[in-house]
Design a protein around this nucleic acid. Structure first.
Length: 696
DNA sequence: CGTGGCCGGCTTTTT
DNA sequence: GCCGGCCACG
């Protein structure tokens, strides 16, 4: 992570607004913290202050949005306590995301009910809904992911199946009204929770069981929430429940940085905080400690055009700074090439390091050209986000076997591996098993186990079922009875099902086989790393609990392969860059259709969230405010989409910036022979465009 | 039942 | 231009 949001300024005293926020300890408090205004510092100082005042740190709960943010905040809070001489209290502090907090509540409360449960990721949820659609024989050609989106929206709004209106606005509302209850029933039968459940099932549980709620209210008497603008209705309800008796809720956020409405976040939470929590105090932090004036001017210019929300204007007392640079390239390839050369130049001429730079863009697909160009210039870099490792087929397959070992009701995991590697249980046989299960009230796994009691299963499939049952039985024994380490269990399992053999046999090349098996081995290593790390004594490593805990953690932090990557240039989407800051920021693709993205410009029937161009504006704002010293905004004049070259127009946000605030220039073509190969693609695009023009 | 090839569609952001 | 789904064949 290359975001030391604090280091050089730690000794600077709090400004009056910050101090007020730190000292206001009791009752609801809303801190409207502009970008770079020291909000994390306010939260951590406030935690330190609470502890100084004698509040036991175990009664304090700090909520963040991402795992990364949680880790950072815990670290900084510990540092503050250390400074205050309360280092001993640090361990008992709880800093977690809403999702992992929800998980631990459900885990603790359901221990009595016994048994492991599974967390479904997007892919699992999608399979589940597809399964329901086909089982229910609901017409045809519904977009399952659109339905998933609507269900998720309902959950985010803290709505149960019966809370959905009978008269939906469109056919997707209607189909969702039918599917949602069936989906919930299936999830409970599978002993599975989806991401949204981790929050709203807690709210539902507390609603049903005031006695349980009372216990949690007693254990957490001071709540702090970061990035409050990104919370959804369900999260707000959970907070409201938790704070009901003491009202000690401090939320920090910035409505100008609300960029997750598409995922159910409700800006109303921060806009109406004072209504939700009567008597709330509101404090605005407007002094920016991060960026030079020219960067801030652009940020203010963009955000002042917004239509709703709390008005804030950031200011700085840092003098000087370079004018914001706007660059226009012929193609995205040339844009990327220019970025890489500019970074190289600044490293060479000004002693900058790779980590001083970030390249930001709207969508993951834009990273490819930049990666290539940076590789060409030999600049160390890292692409954040862009789901990768845990999405790989072979990784998901192995994880499914392990999930199934712990929770044999997990039908999605079972379906994934029931015939992988092939063991004679084809699609027809799976459907027969499922039908039998349905008719007899068994789970699918029970149908596999009791295949002898079924008469319409072909012999090959019958054998396959017995084989699978044997494999799973042995694995379960190793894990539960012998309490073997997860890494060893996983290795044995692969051996038993012949995973390596299958990968080698089914891969197109030796190379591909090596890579795929390498992914499996990487997963082994991930297990081993956790087993050896075990600094936190309360985490069991072996056996059922150890594996279950680890699988949950893996699902909740899919893409954080947290390796201390230090001195590298960061490539990230704008969403992924929130909360980070860099010396120099390149914001690529400032074009209509990309930023704002075309998906928000043209509405589609399957959309589950109303498109909002204002959110794109805030996204642009987030990108701009990541820069400390220098900011570059760039765009390409032509881009290839769907195989065809398309002329591009500058982003409306670019046009809204007063011209005197920026310096604009064309990126001129370099006569560097080593780039001939790269420019070939660009040249052919230009040639095609010329041909197109000639036709007209 | 399993495999390979062909055709078609489309492409945001993530706990 | 790429990936994924579908169909036909072995």
């Amino acid at each position: 992570m290359s975001a030391p949001t604090h280091s050089p300024r730690a000794p600077i005293p709090l400004n009056p607004a910050q101090a007020e926020a730190v000292e206001h300890l009791n009752g609801p408090l809303l801190v409207l913290a502009g970008a770079g205004s020291g909000k994390t510092r306010v939260i951590t100082q406030r935690i330190g202050r609470l502890v100084e005042k004698g509040i036991p740190s175990k009664a304090i709960l700090a909520m963040t949005f991402t795992n990364k943010a949680a880790g950072e905040m815990a670290e900084r809070a510990h540092a503050v306590m250390q400074e205050n001489g309360n280092g001993g209290a640090a361990k008992a502090l709880t800093v977690s995301t809403f999702h992992s907090f929800g998980l631990s509540v459900l885990q603790r409360e359901q221990k009595a009910m016994g048994g492991a449960f599974t967390i479904f990721d997007q892919g699992d949820v999608l399979s589940c809904v597809k399964e329901i659609l086909s089982r229910e024989r609901i017409g045809k050609s519904f977009d399952a992911s659109a339905i998933v989106g609507r269900i998720s929206n309902a959950k985010n709004a803290f709505m149960q199946p019966e809370d959905l209106p009978d008269d939906g606005k469109d056919e997707y509302d209607e189909i969702t009204k039918i599917v949602y209850p069936k989906y919930q029933a299936a999830m409970r039968a599978f002993r599975a929770y989806d991401f949204d459940d981790l929050v709203c099932e807690v709210g539902q549980l507390w609603k049903r069981r005031p006695d349980v709620l009372a216990r949690w209210q007693e254990s957490f008497r001071y709540i702090l929430v970061d990035e409050y603008q990104d919370t959804n209705r369900a999260q707000m309800e959970v907070l409201r429940q938790l704070c009901a008796p003491h009202k000690n809720l401090c939320v920090v956020g910035d409505d100008d940085q609300a960029i997750y409405a598409w995922r159910g976040a409700d800006v109303e939470n921060i806009l109406s905080f004072e209504e939700h929590f009567p008597g709330a105090k509101v404090i605005k932090l407007e002094q920016n400690y991060r960026s030079r004036a020219p960067v801030l001017d652009v940020a203010n210019a963009v955000i002042s055009k917004k239509l709703i929300g709390h008005q804030k204007t950031l200011f700085t007392d840092k003098p000087g700074g370079d004018l914001v640079q706007v660059r226009v390239a012929a193609t995205p390839q040339m844009e990327a090439e220019w970025v890489s050369k500019e970074i190289k130049r600044m490293i060479r001429d000004f002693g900058k390091r790779p980590k001083d730079f970030a390249v930001l863009y709207r969508s993951n697909g834009q990273s490819k050209d930049v990666e290539e160009a940076l590789r060409e210039q030999m600049i160390a870099h890292k692409v954040v986000g862009g789901q990768t490792f845990f999405e790989r087929k072979e990784v998901k397959d192995l994880l499914s076997y392990l999930k199934l070992t712990l929770n044999r009701s997990d039908e999605i995991a079972l379906r994934r591996v029931i015939n992988y590697p092939p063991r004679g249980i084809g699609e027809q046989s799976v459907e027969k098993l499922a039908l039998n299960a349905l008719g007899r009230g068994w789970t699918l796994w029970q149908a596999v186990e009791r295949v002898d009691a079924l008469d319409d299963i072909p012999p090959a499939a019958r054998e396959g079922c017995k084989q699978l049952e044997r494999v799973m039985g042995e694995t379960r024994k190793q894990l539960l009875a012998e309490r073997m380490k997860a890494s060893d269990v996983a290795r044995d399992l692969c051996e038993r099902v012949g995973l390596k053999r299958d990968i080698e046999g089914s891969s197109p090349s030796n190379n591909a086989a090596g890579r795929r098996w390498g992914n499996v081995e990487a997963l082994f290593r991930t297990f081993e790393r956790r087993e050896t790390r075990r600094g936190d004594a309360h985490d069991e490593v072996g056996g059922e609990q150890g594996l279950a805990g680890f699988l949950h953690a893996l699902t909740l932090q899919m893409n954080s392969e947290e390796e201390a990557t230090t001195d590298v240039t960061i490539l990230s989407t704008l969403h992924g860059a929130k909360g980070l800051e860099f010396d120099t920021v390149f914001l690529l693709g400032c074009e209509e259709g990309l930023l704002p993205h075309s998906r928000t410009l043209e509405v589609r029937a399957t959309d589950s969230t109303p498109a909002d161009v204002e959110e794109e504006r805030r996204l642009f704002y987030v990108g701009v405010t990541r820069a400390r010293e220098r900011l570059y905004l760039s765009r390409a004049k032509h881009r290839v989409s769907r195989g065809k070259p398309v002329p591009r127009t500058p982003s409306r946000f670019l046009l809204e910036i007063p011209p005197e605030m920026v310096e604009e220039d064309e990126i001129r073509e370099e006569l560097d022979p080593s780039f001939d190969a790269m420019n070939e693609g660009a040249a052919s695009v230009l040639a095609a465009l010329a041909a197109l023009d000639a036709l007209k």
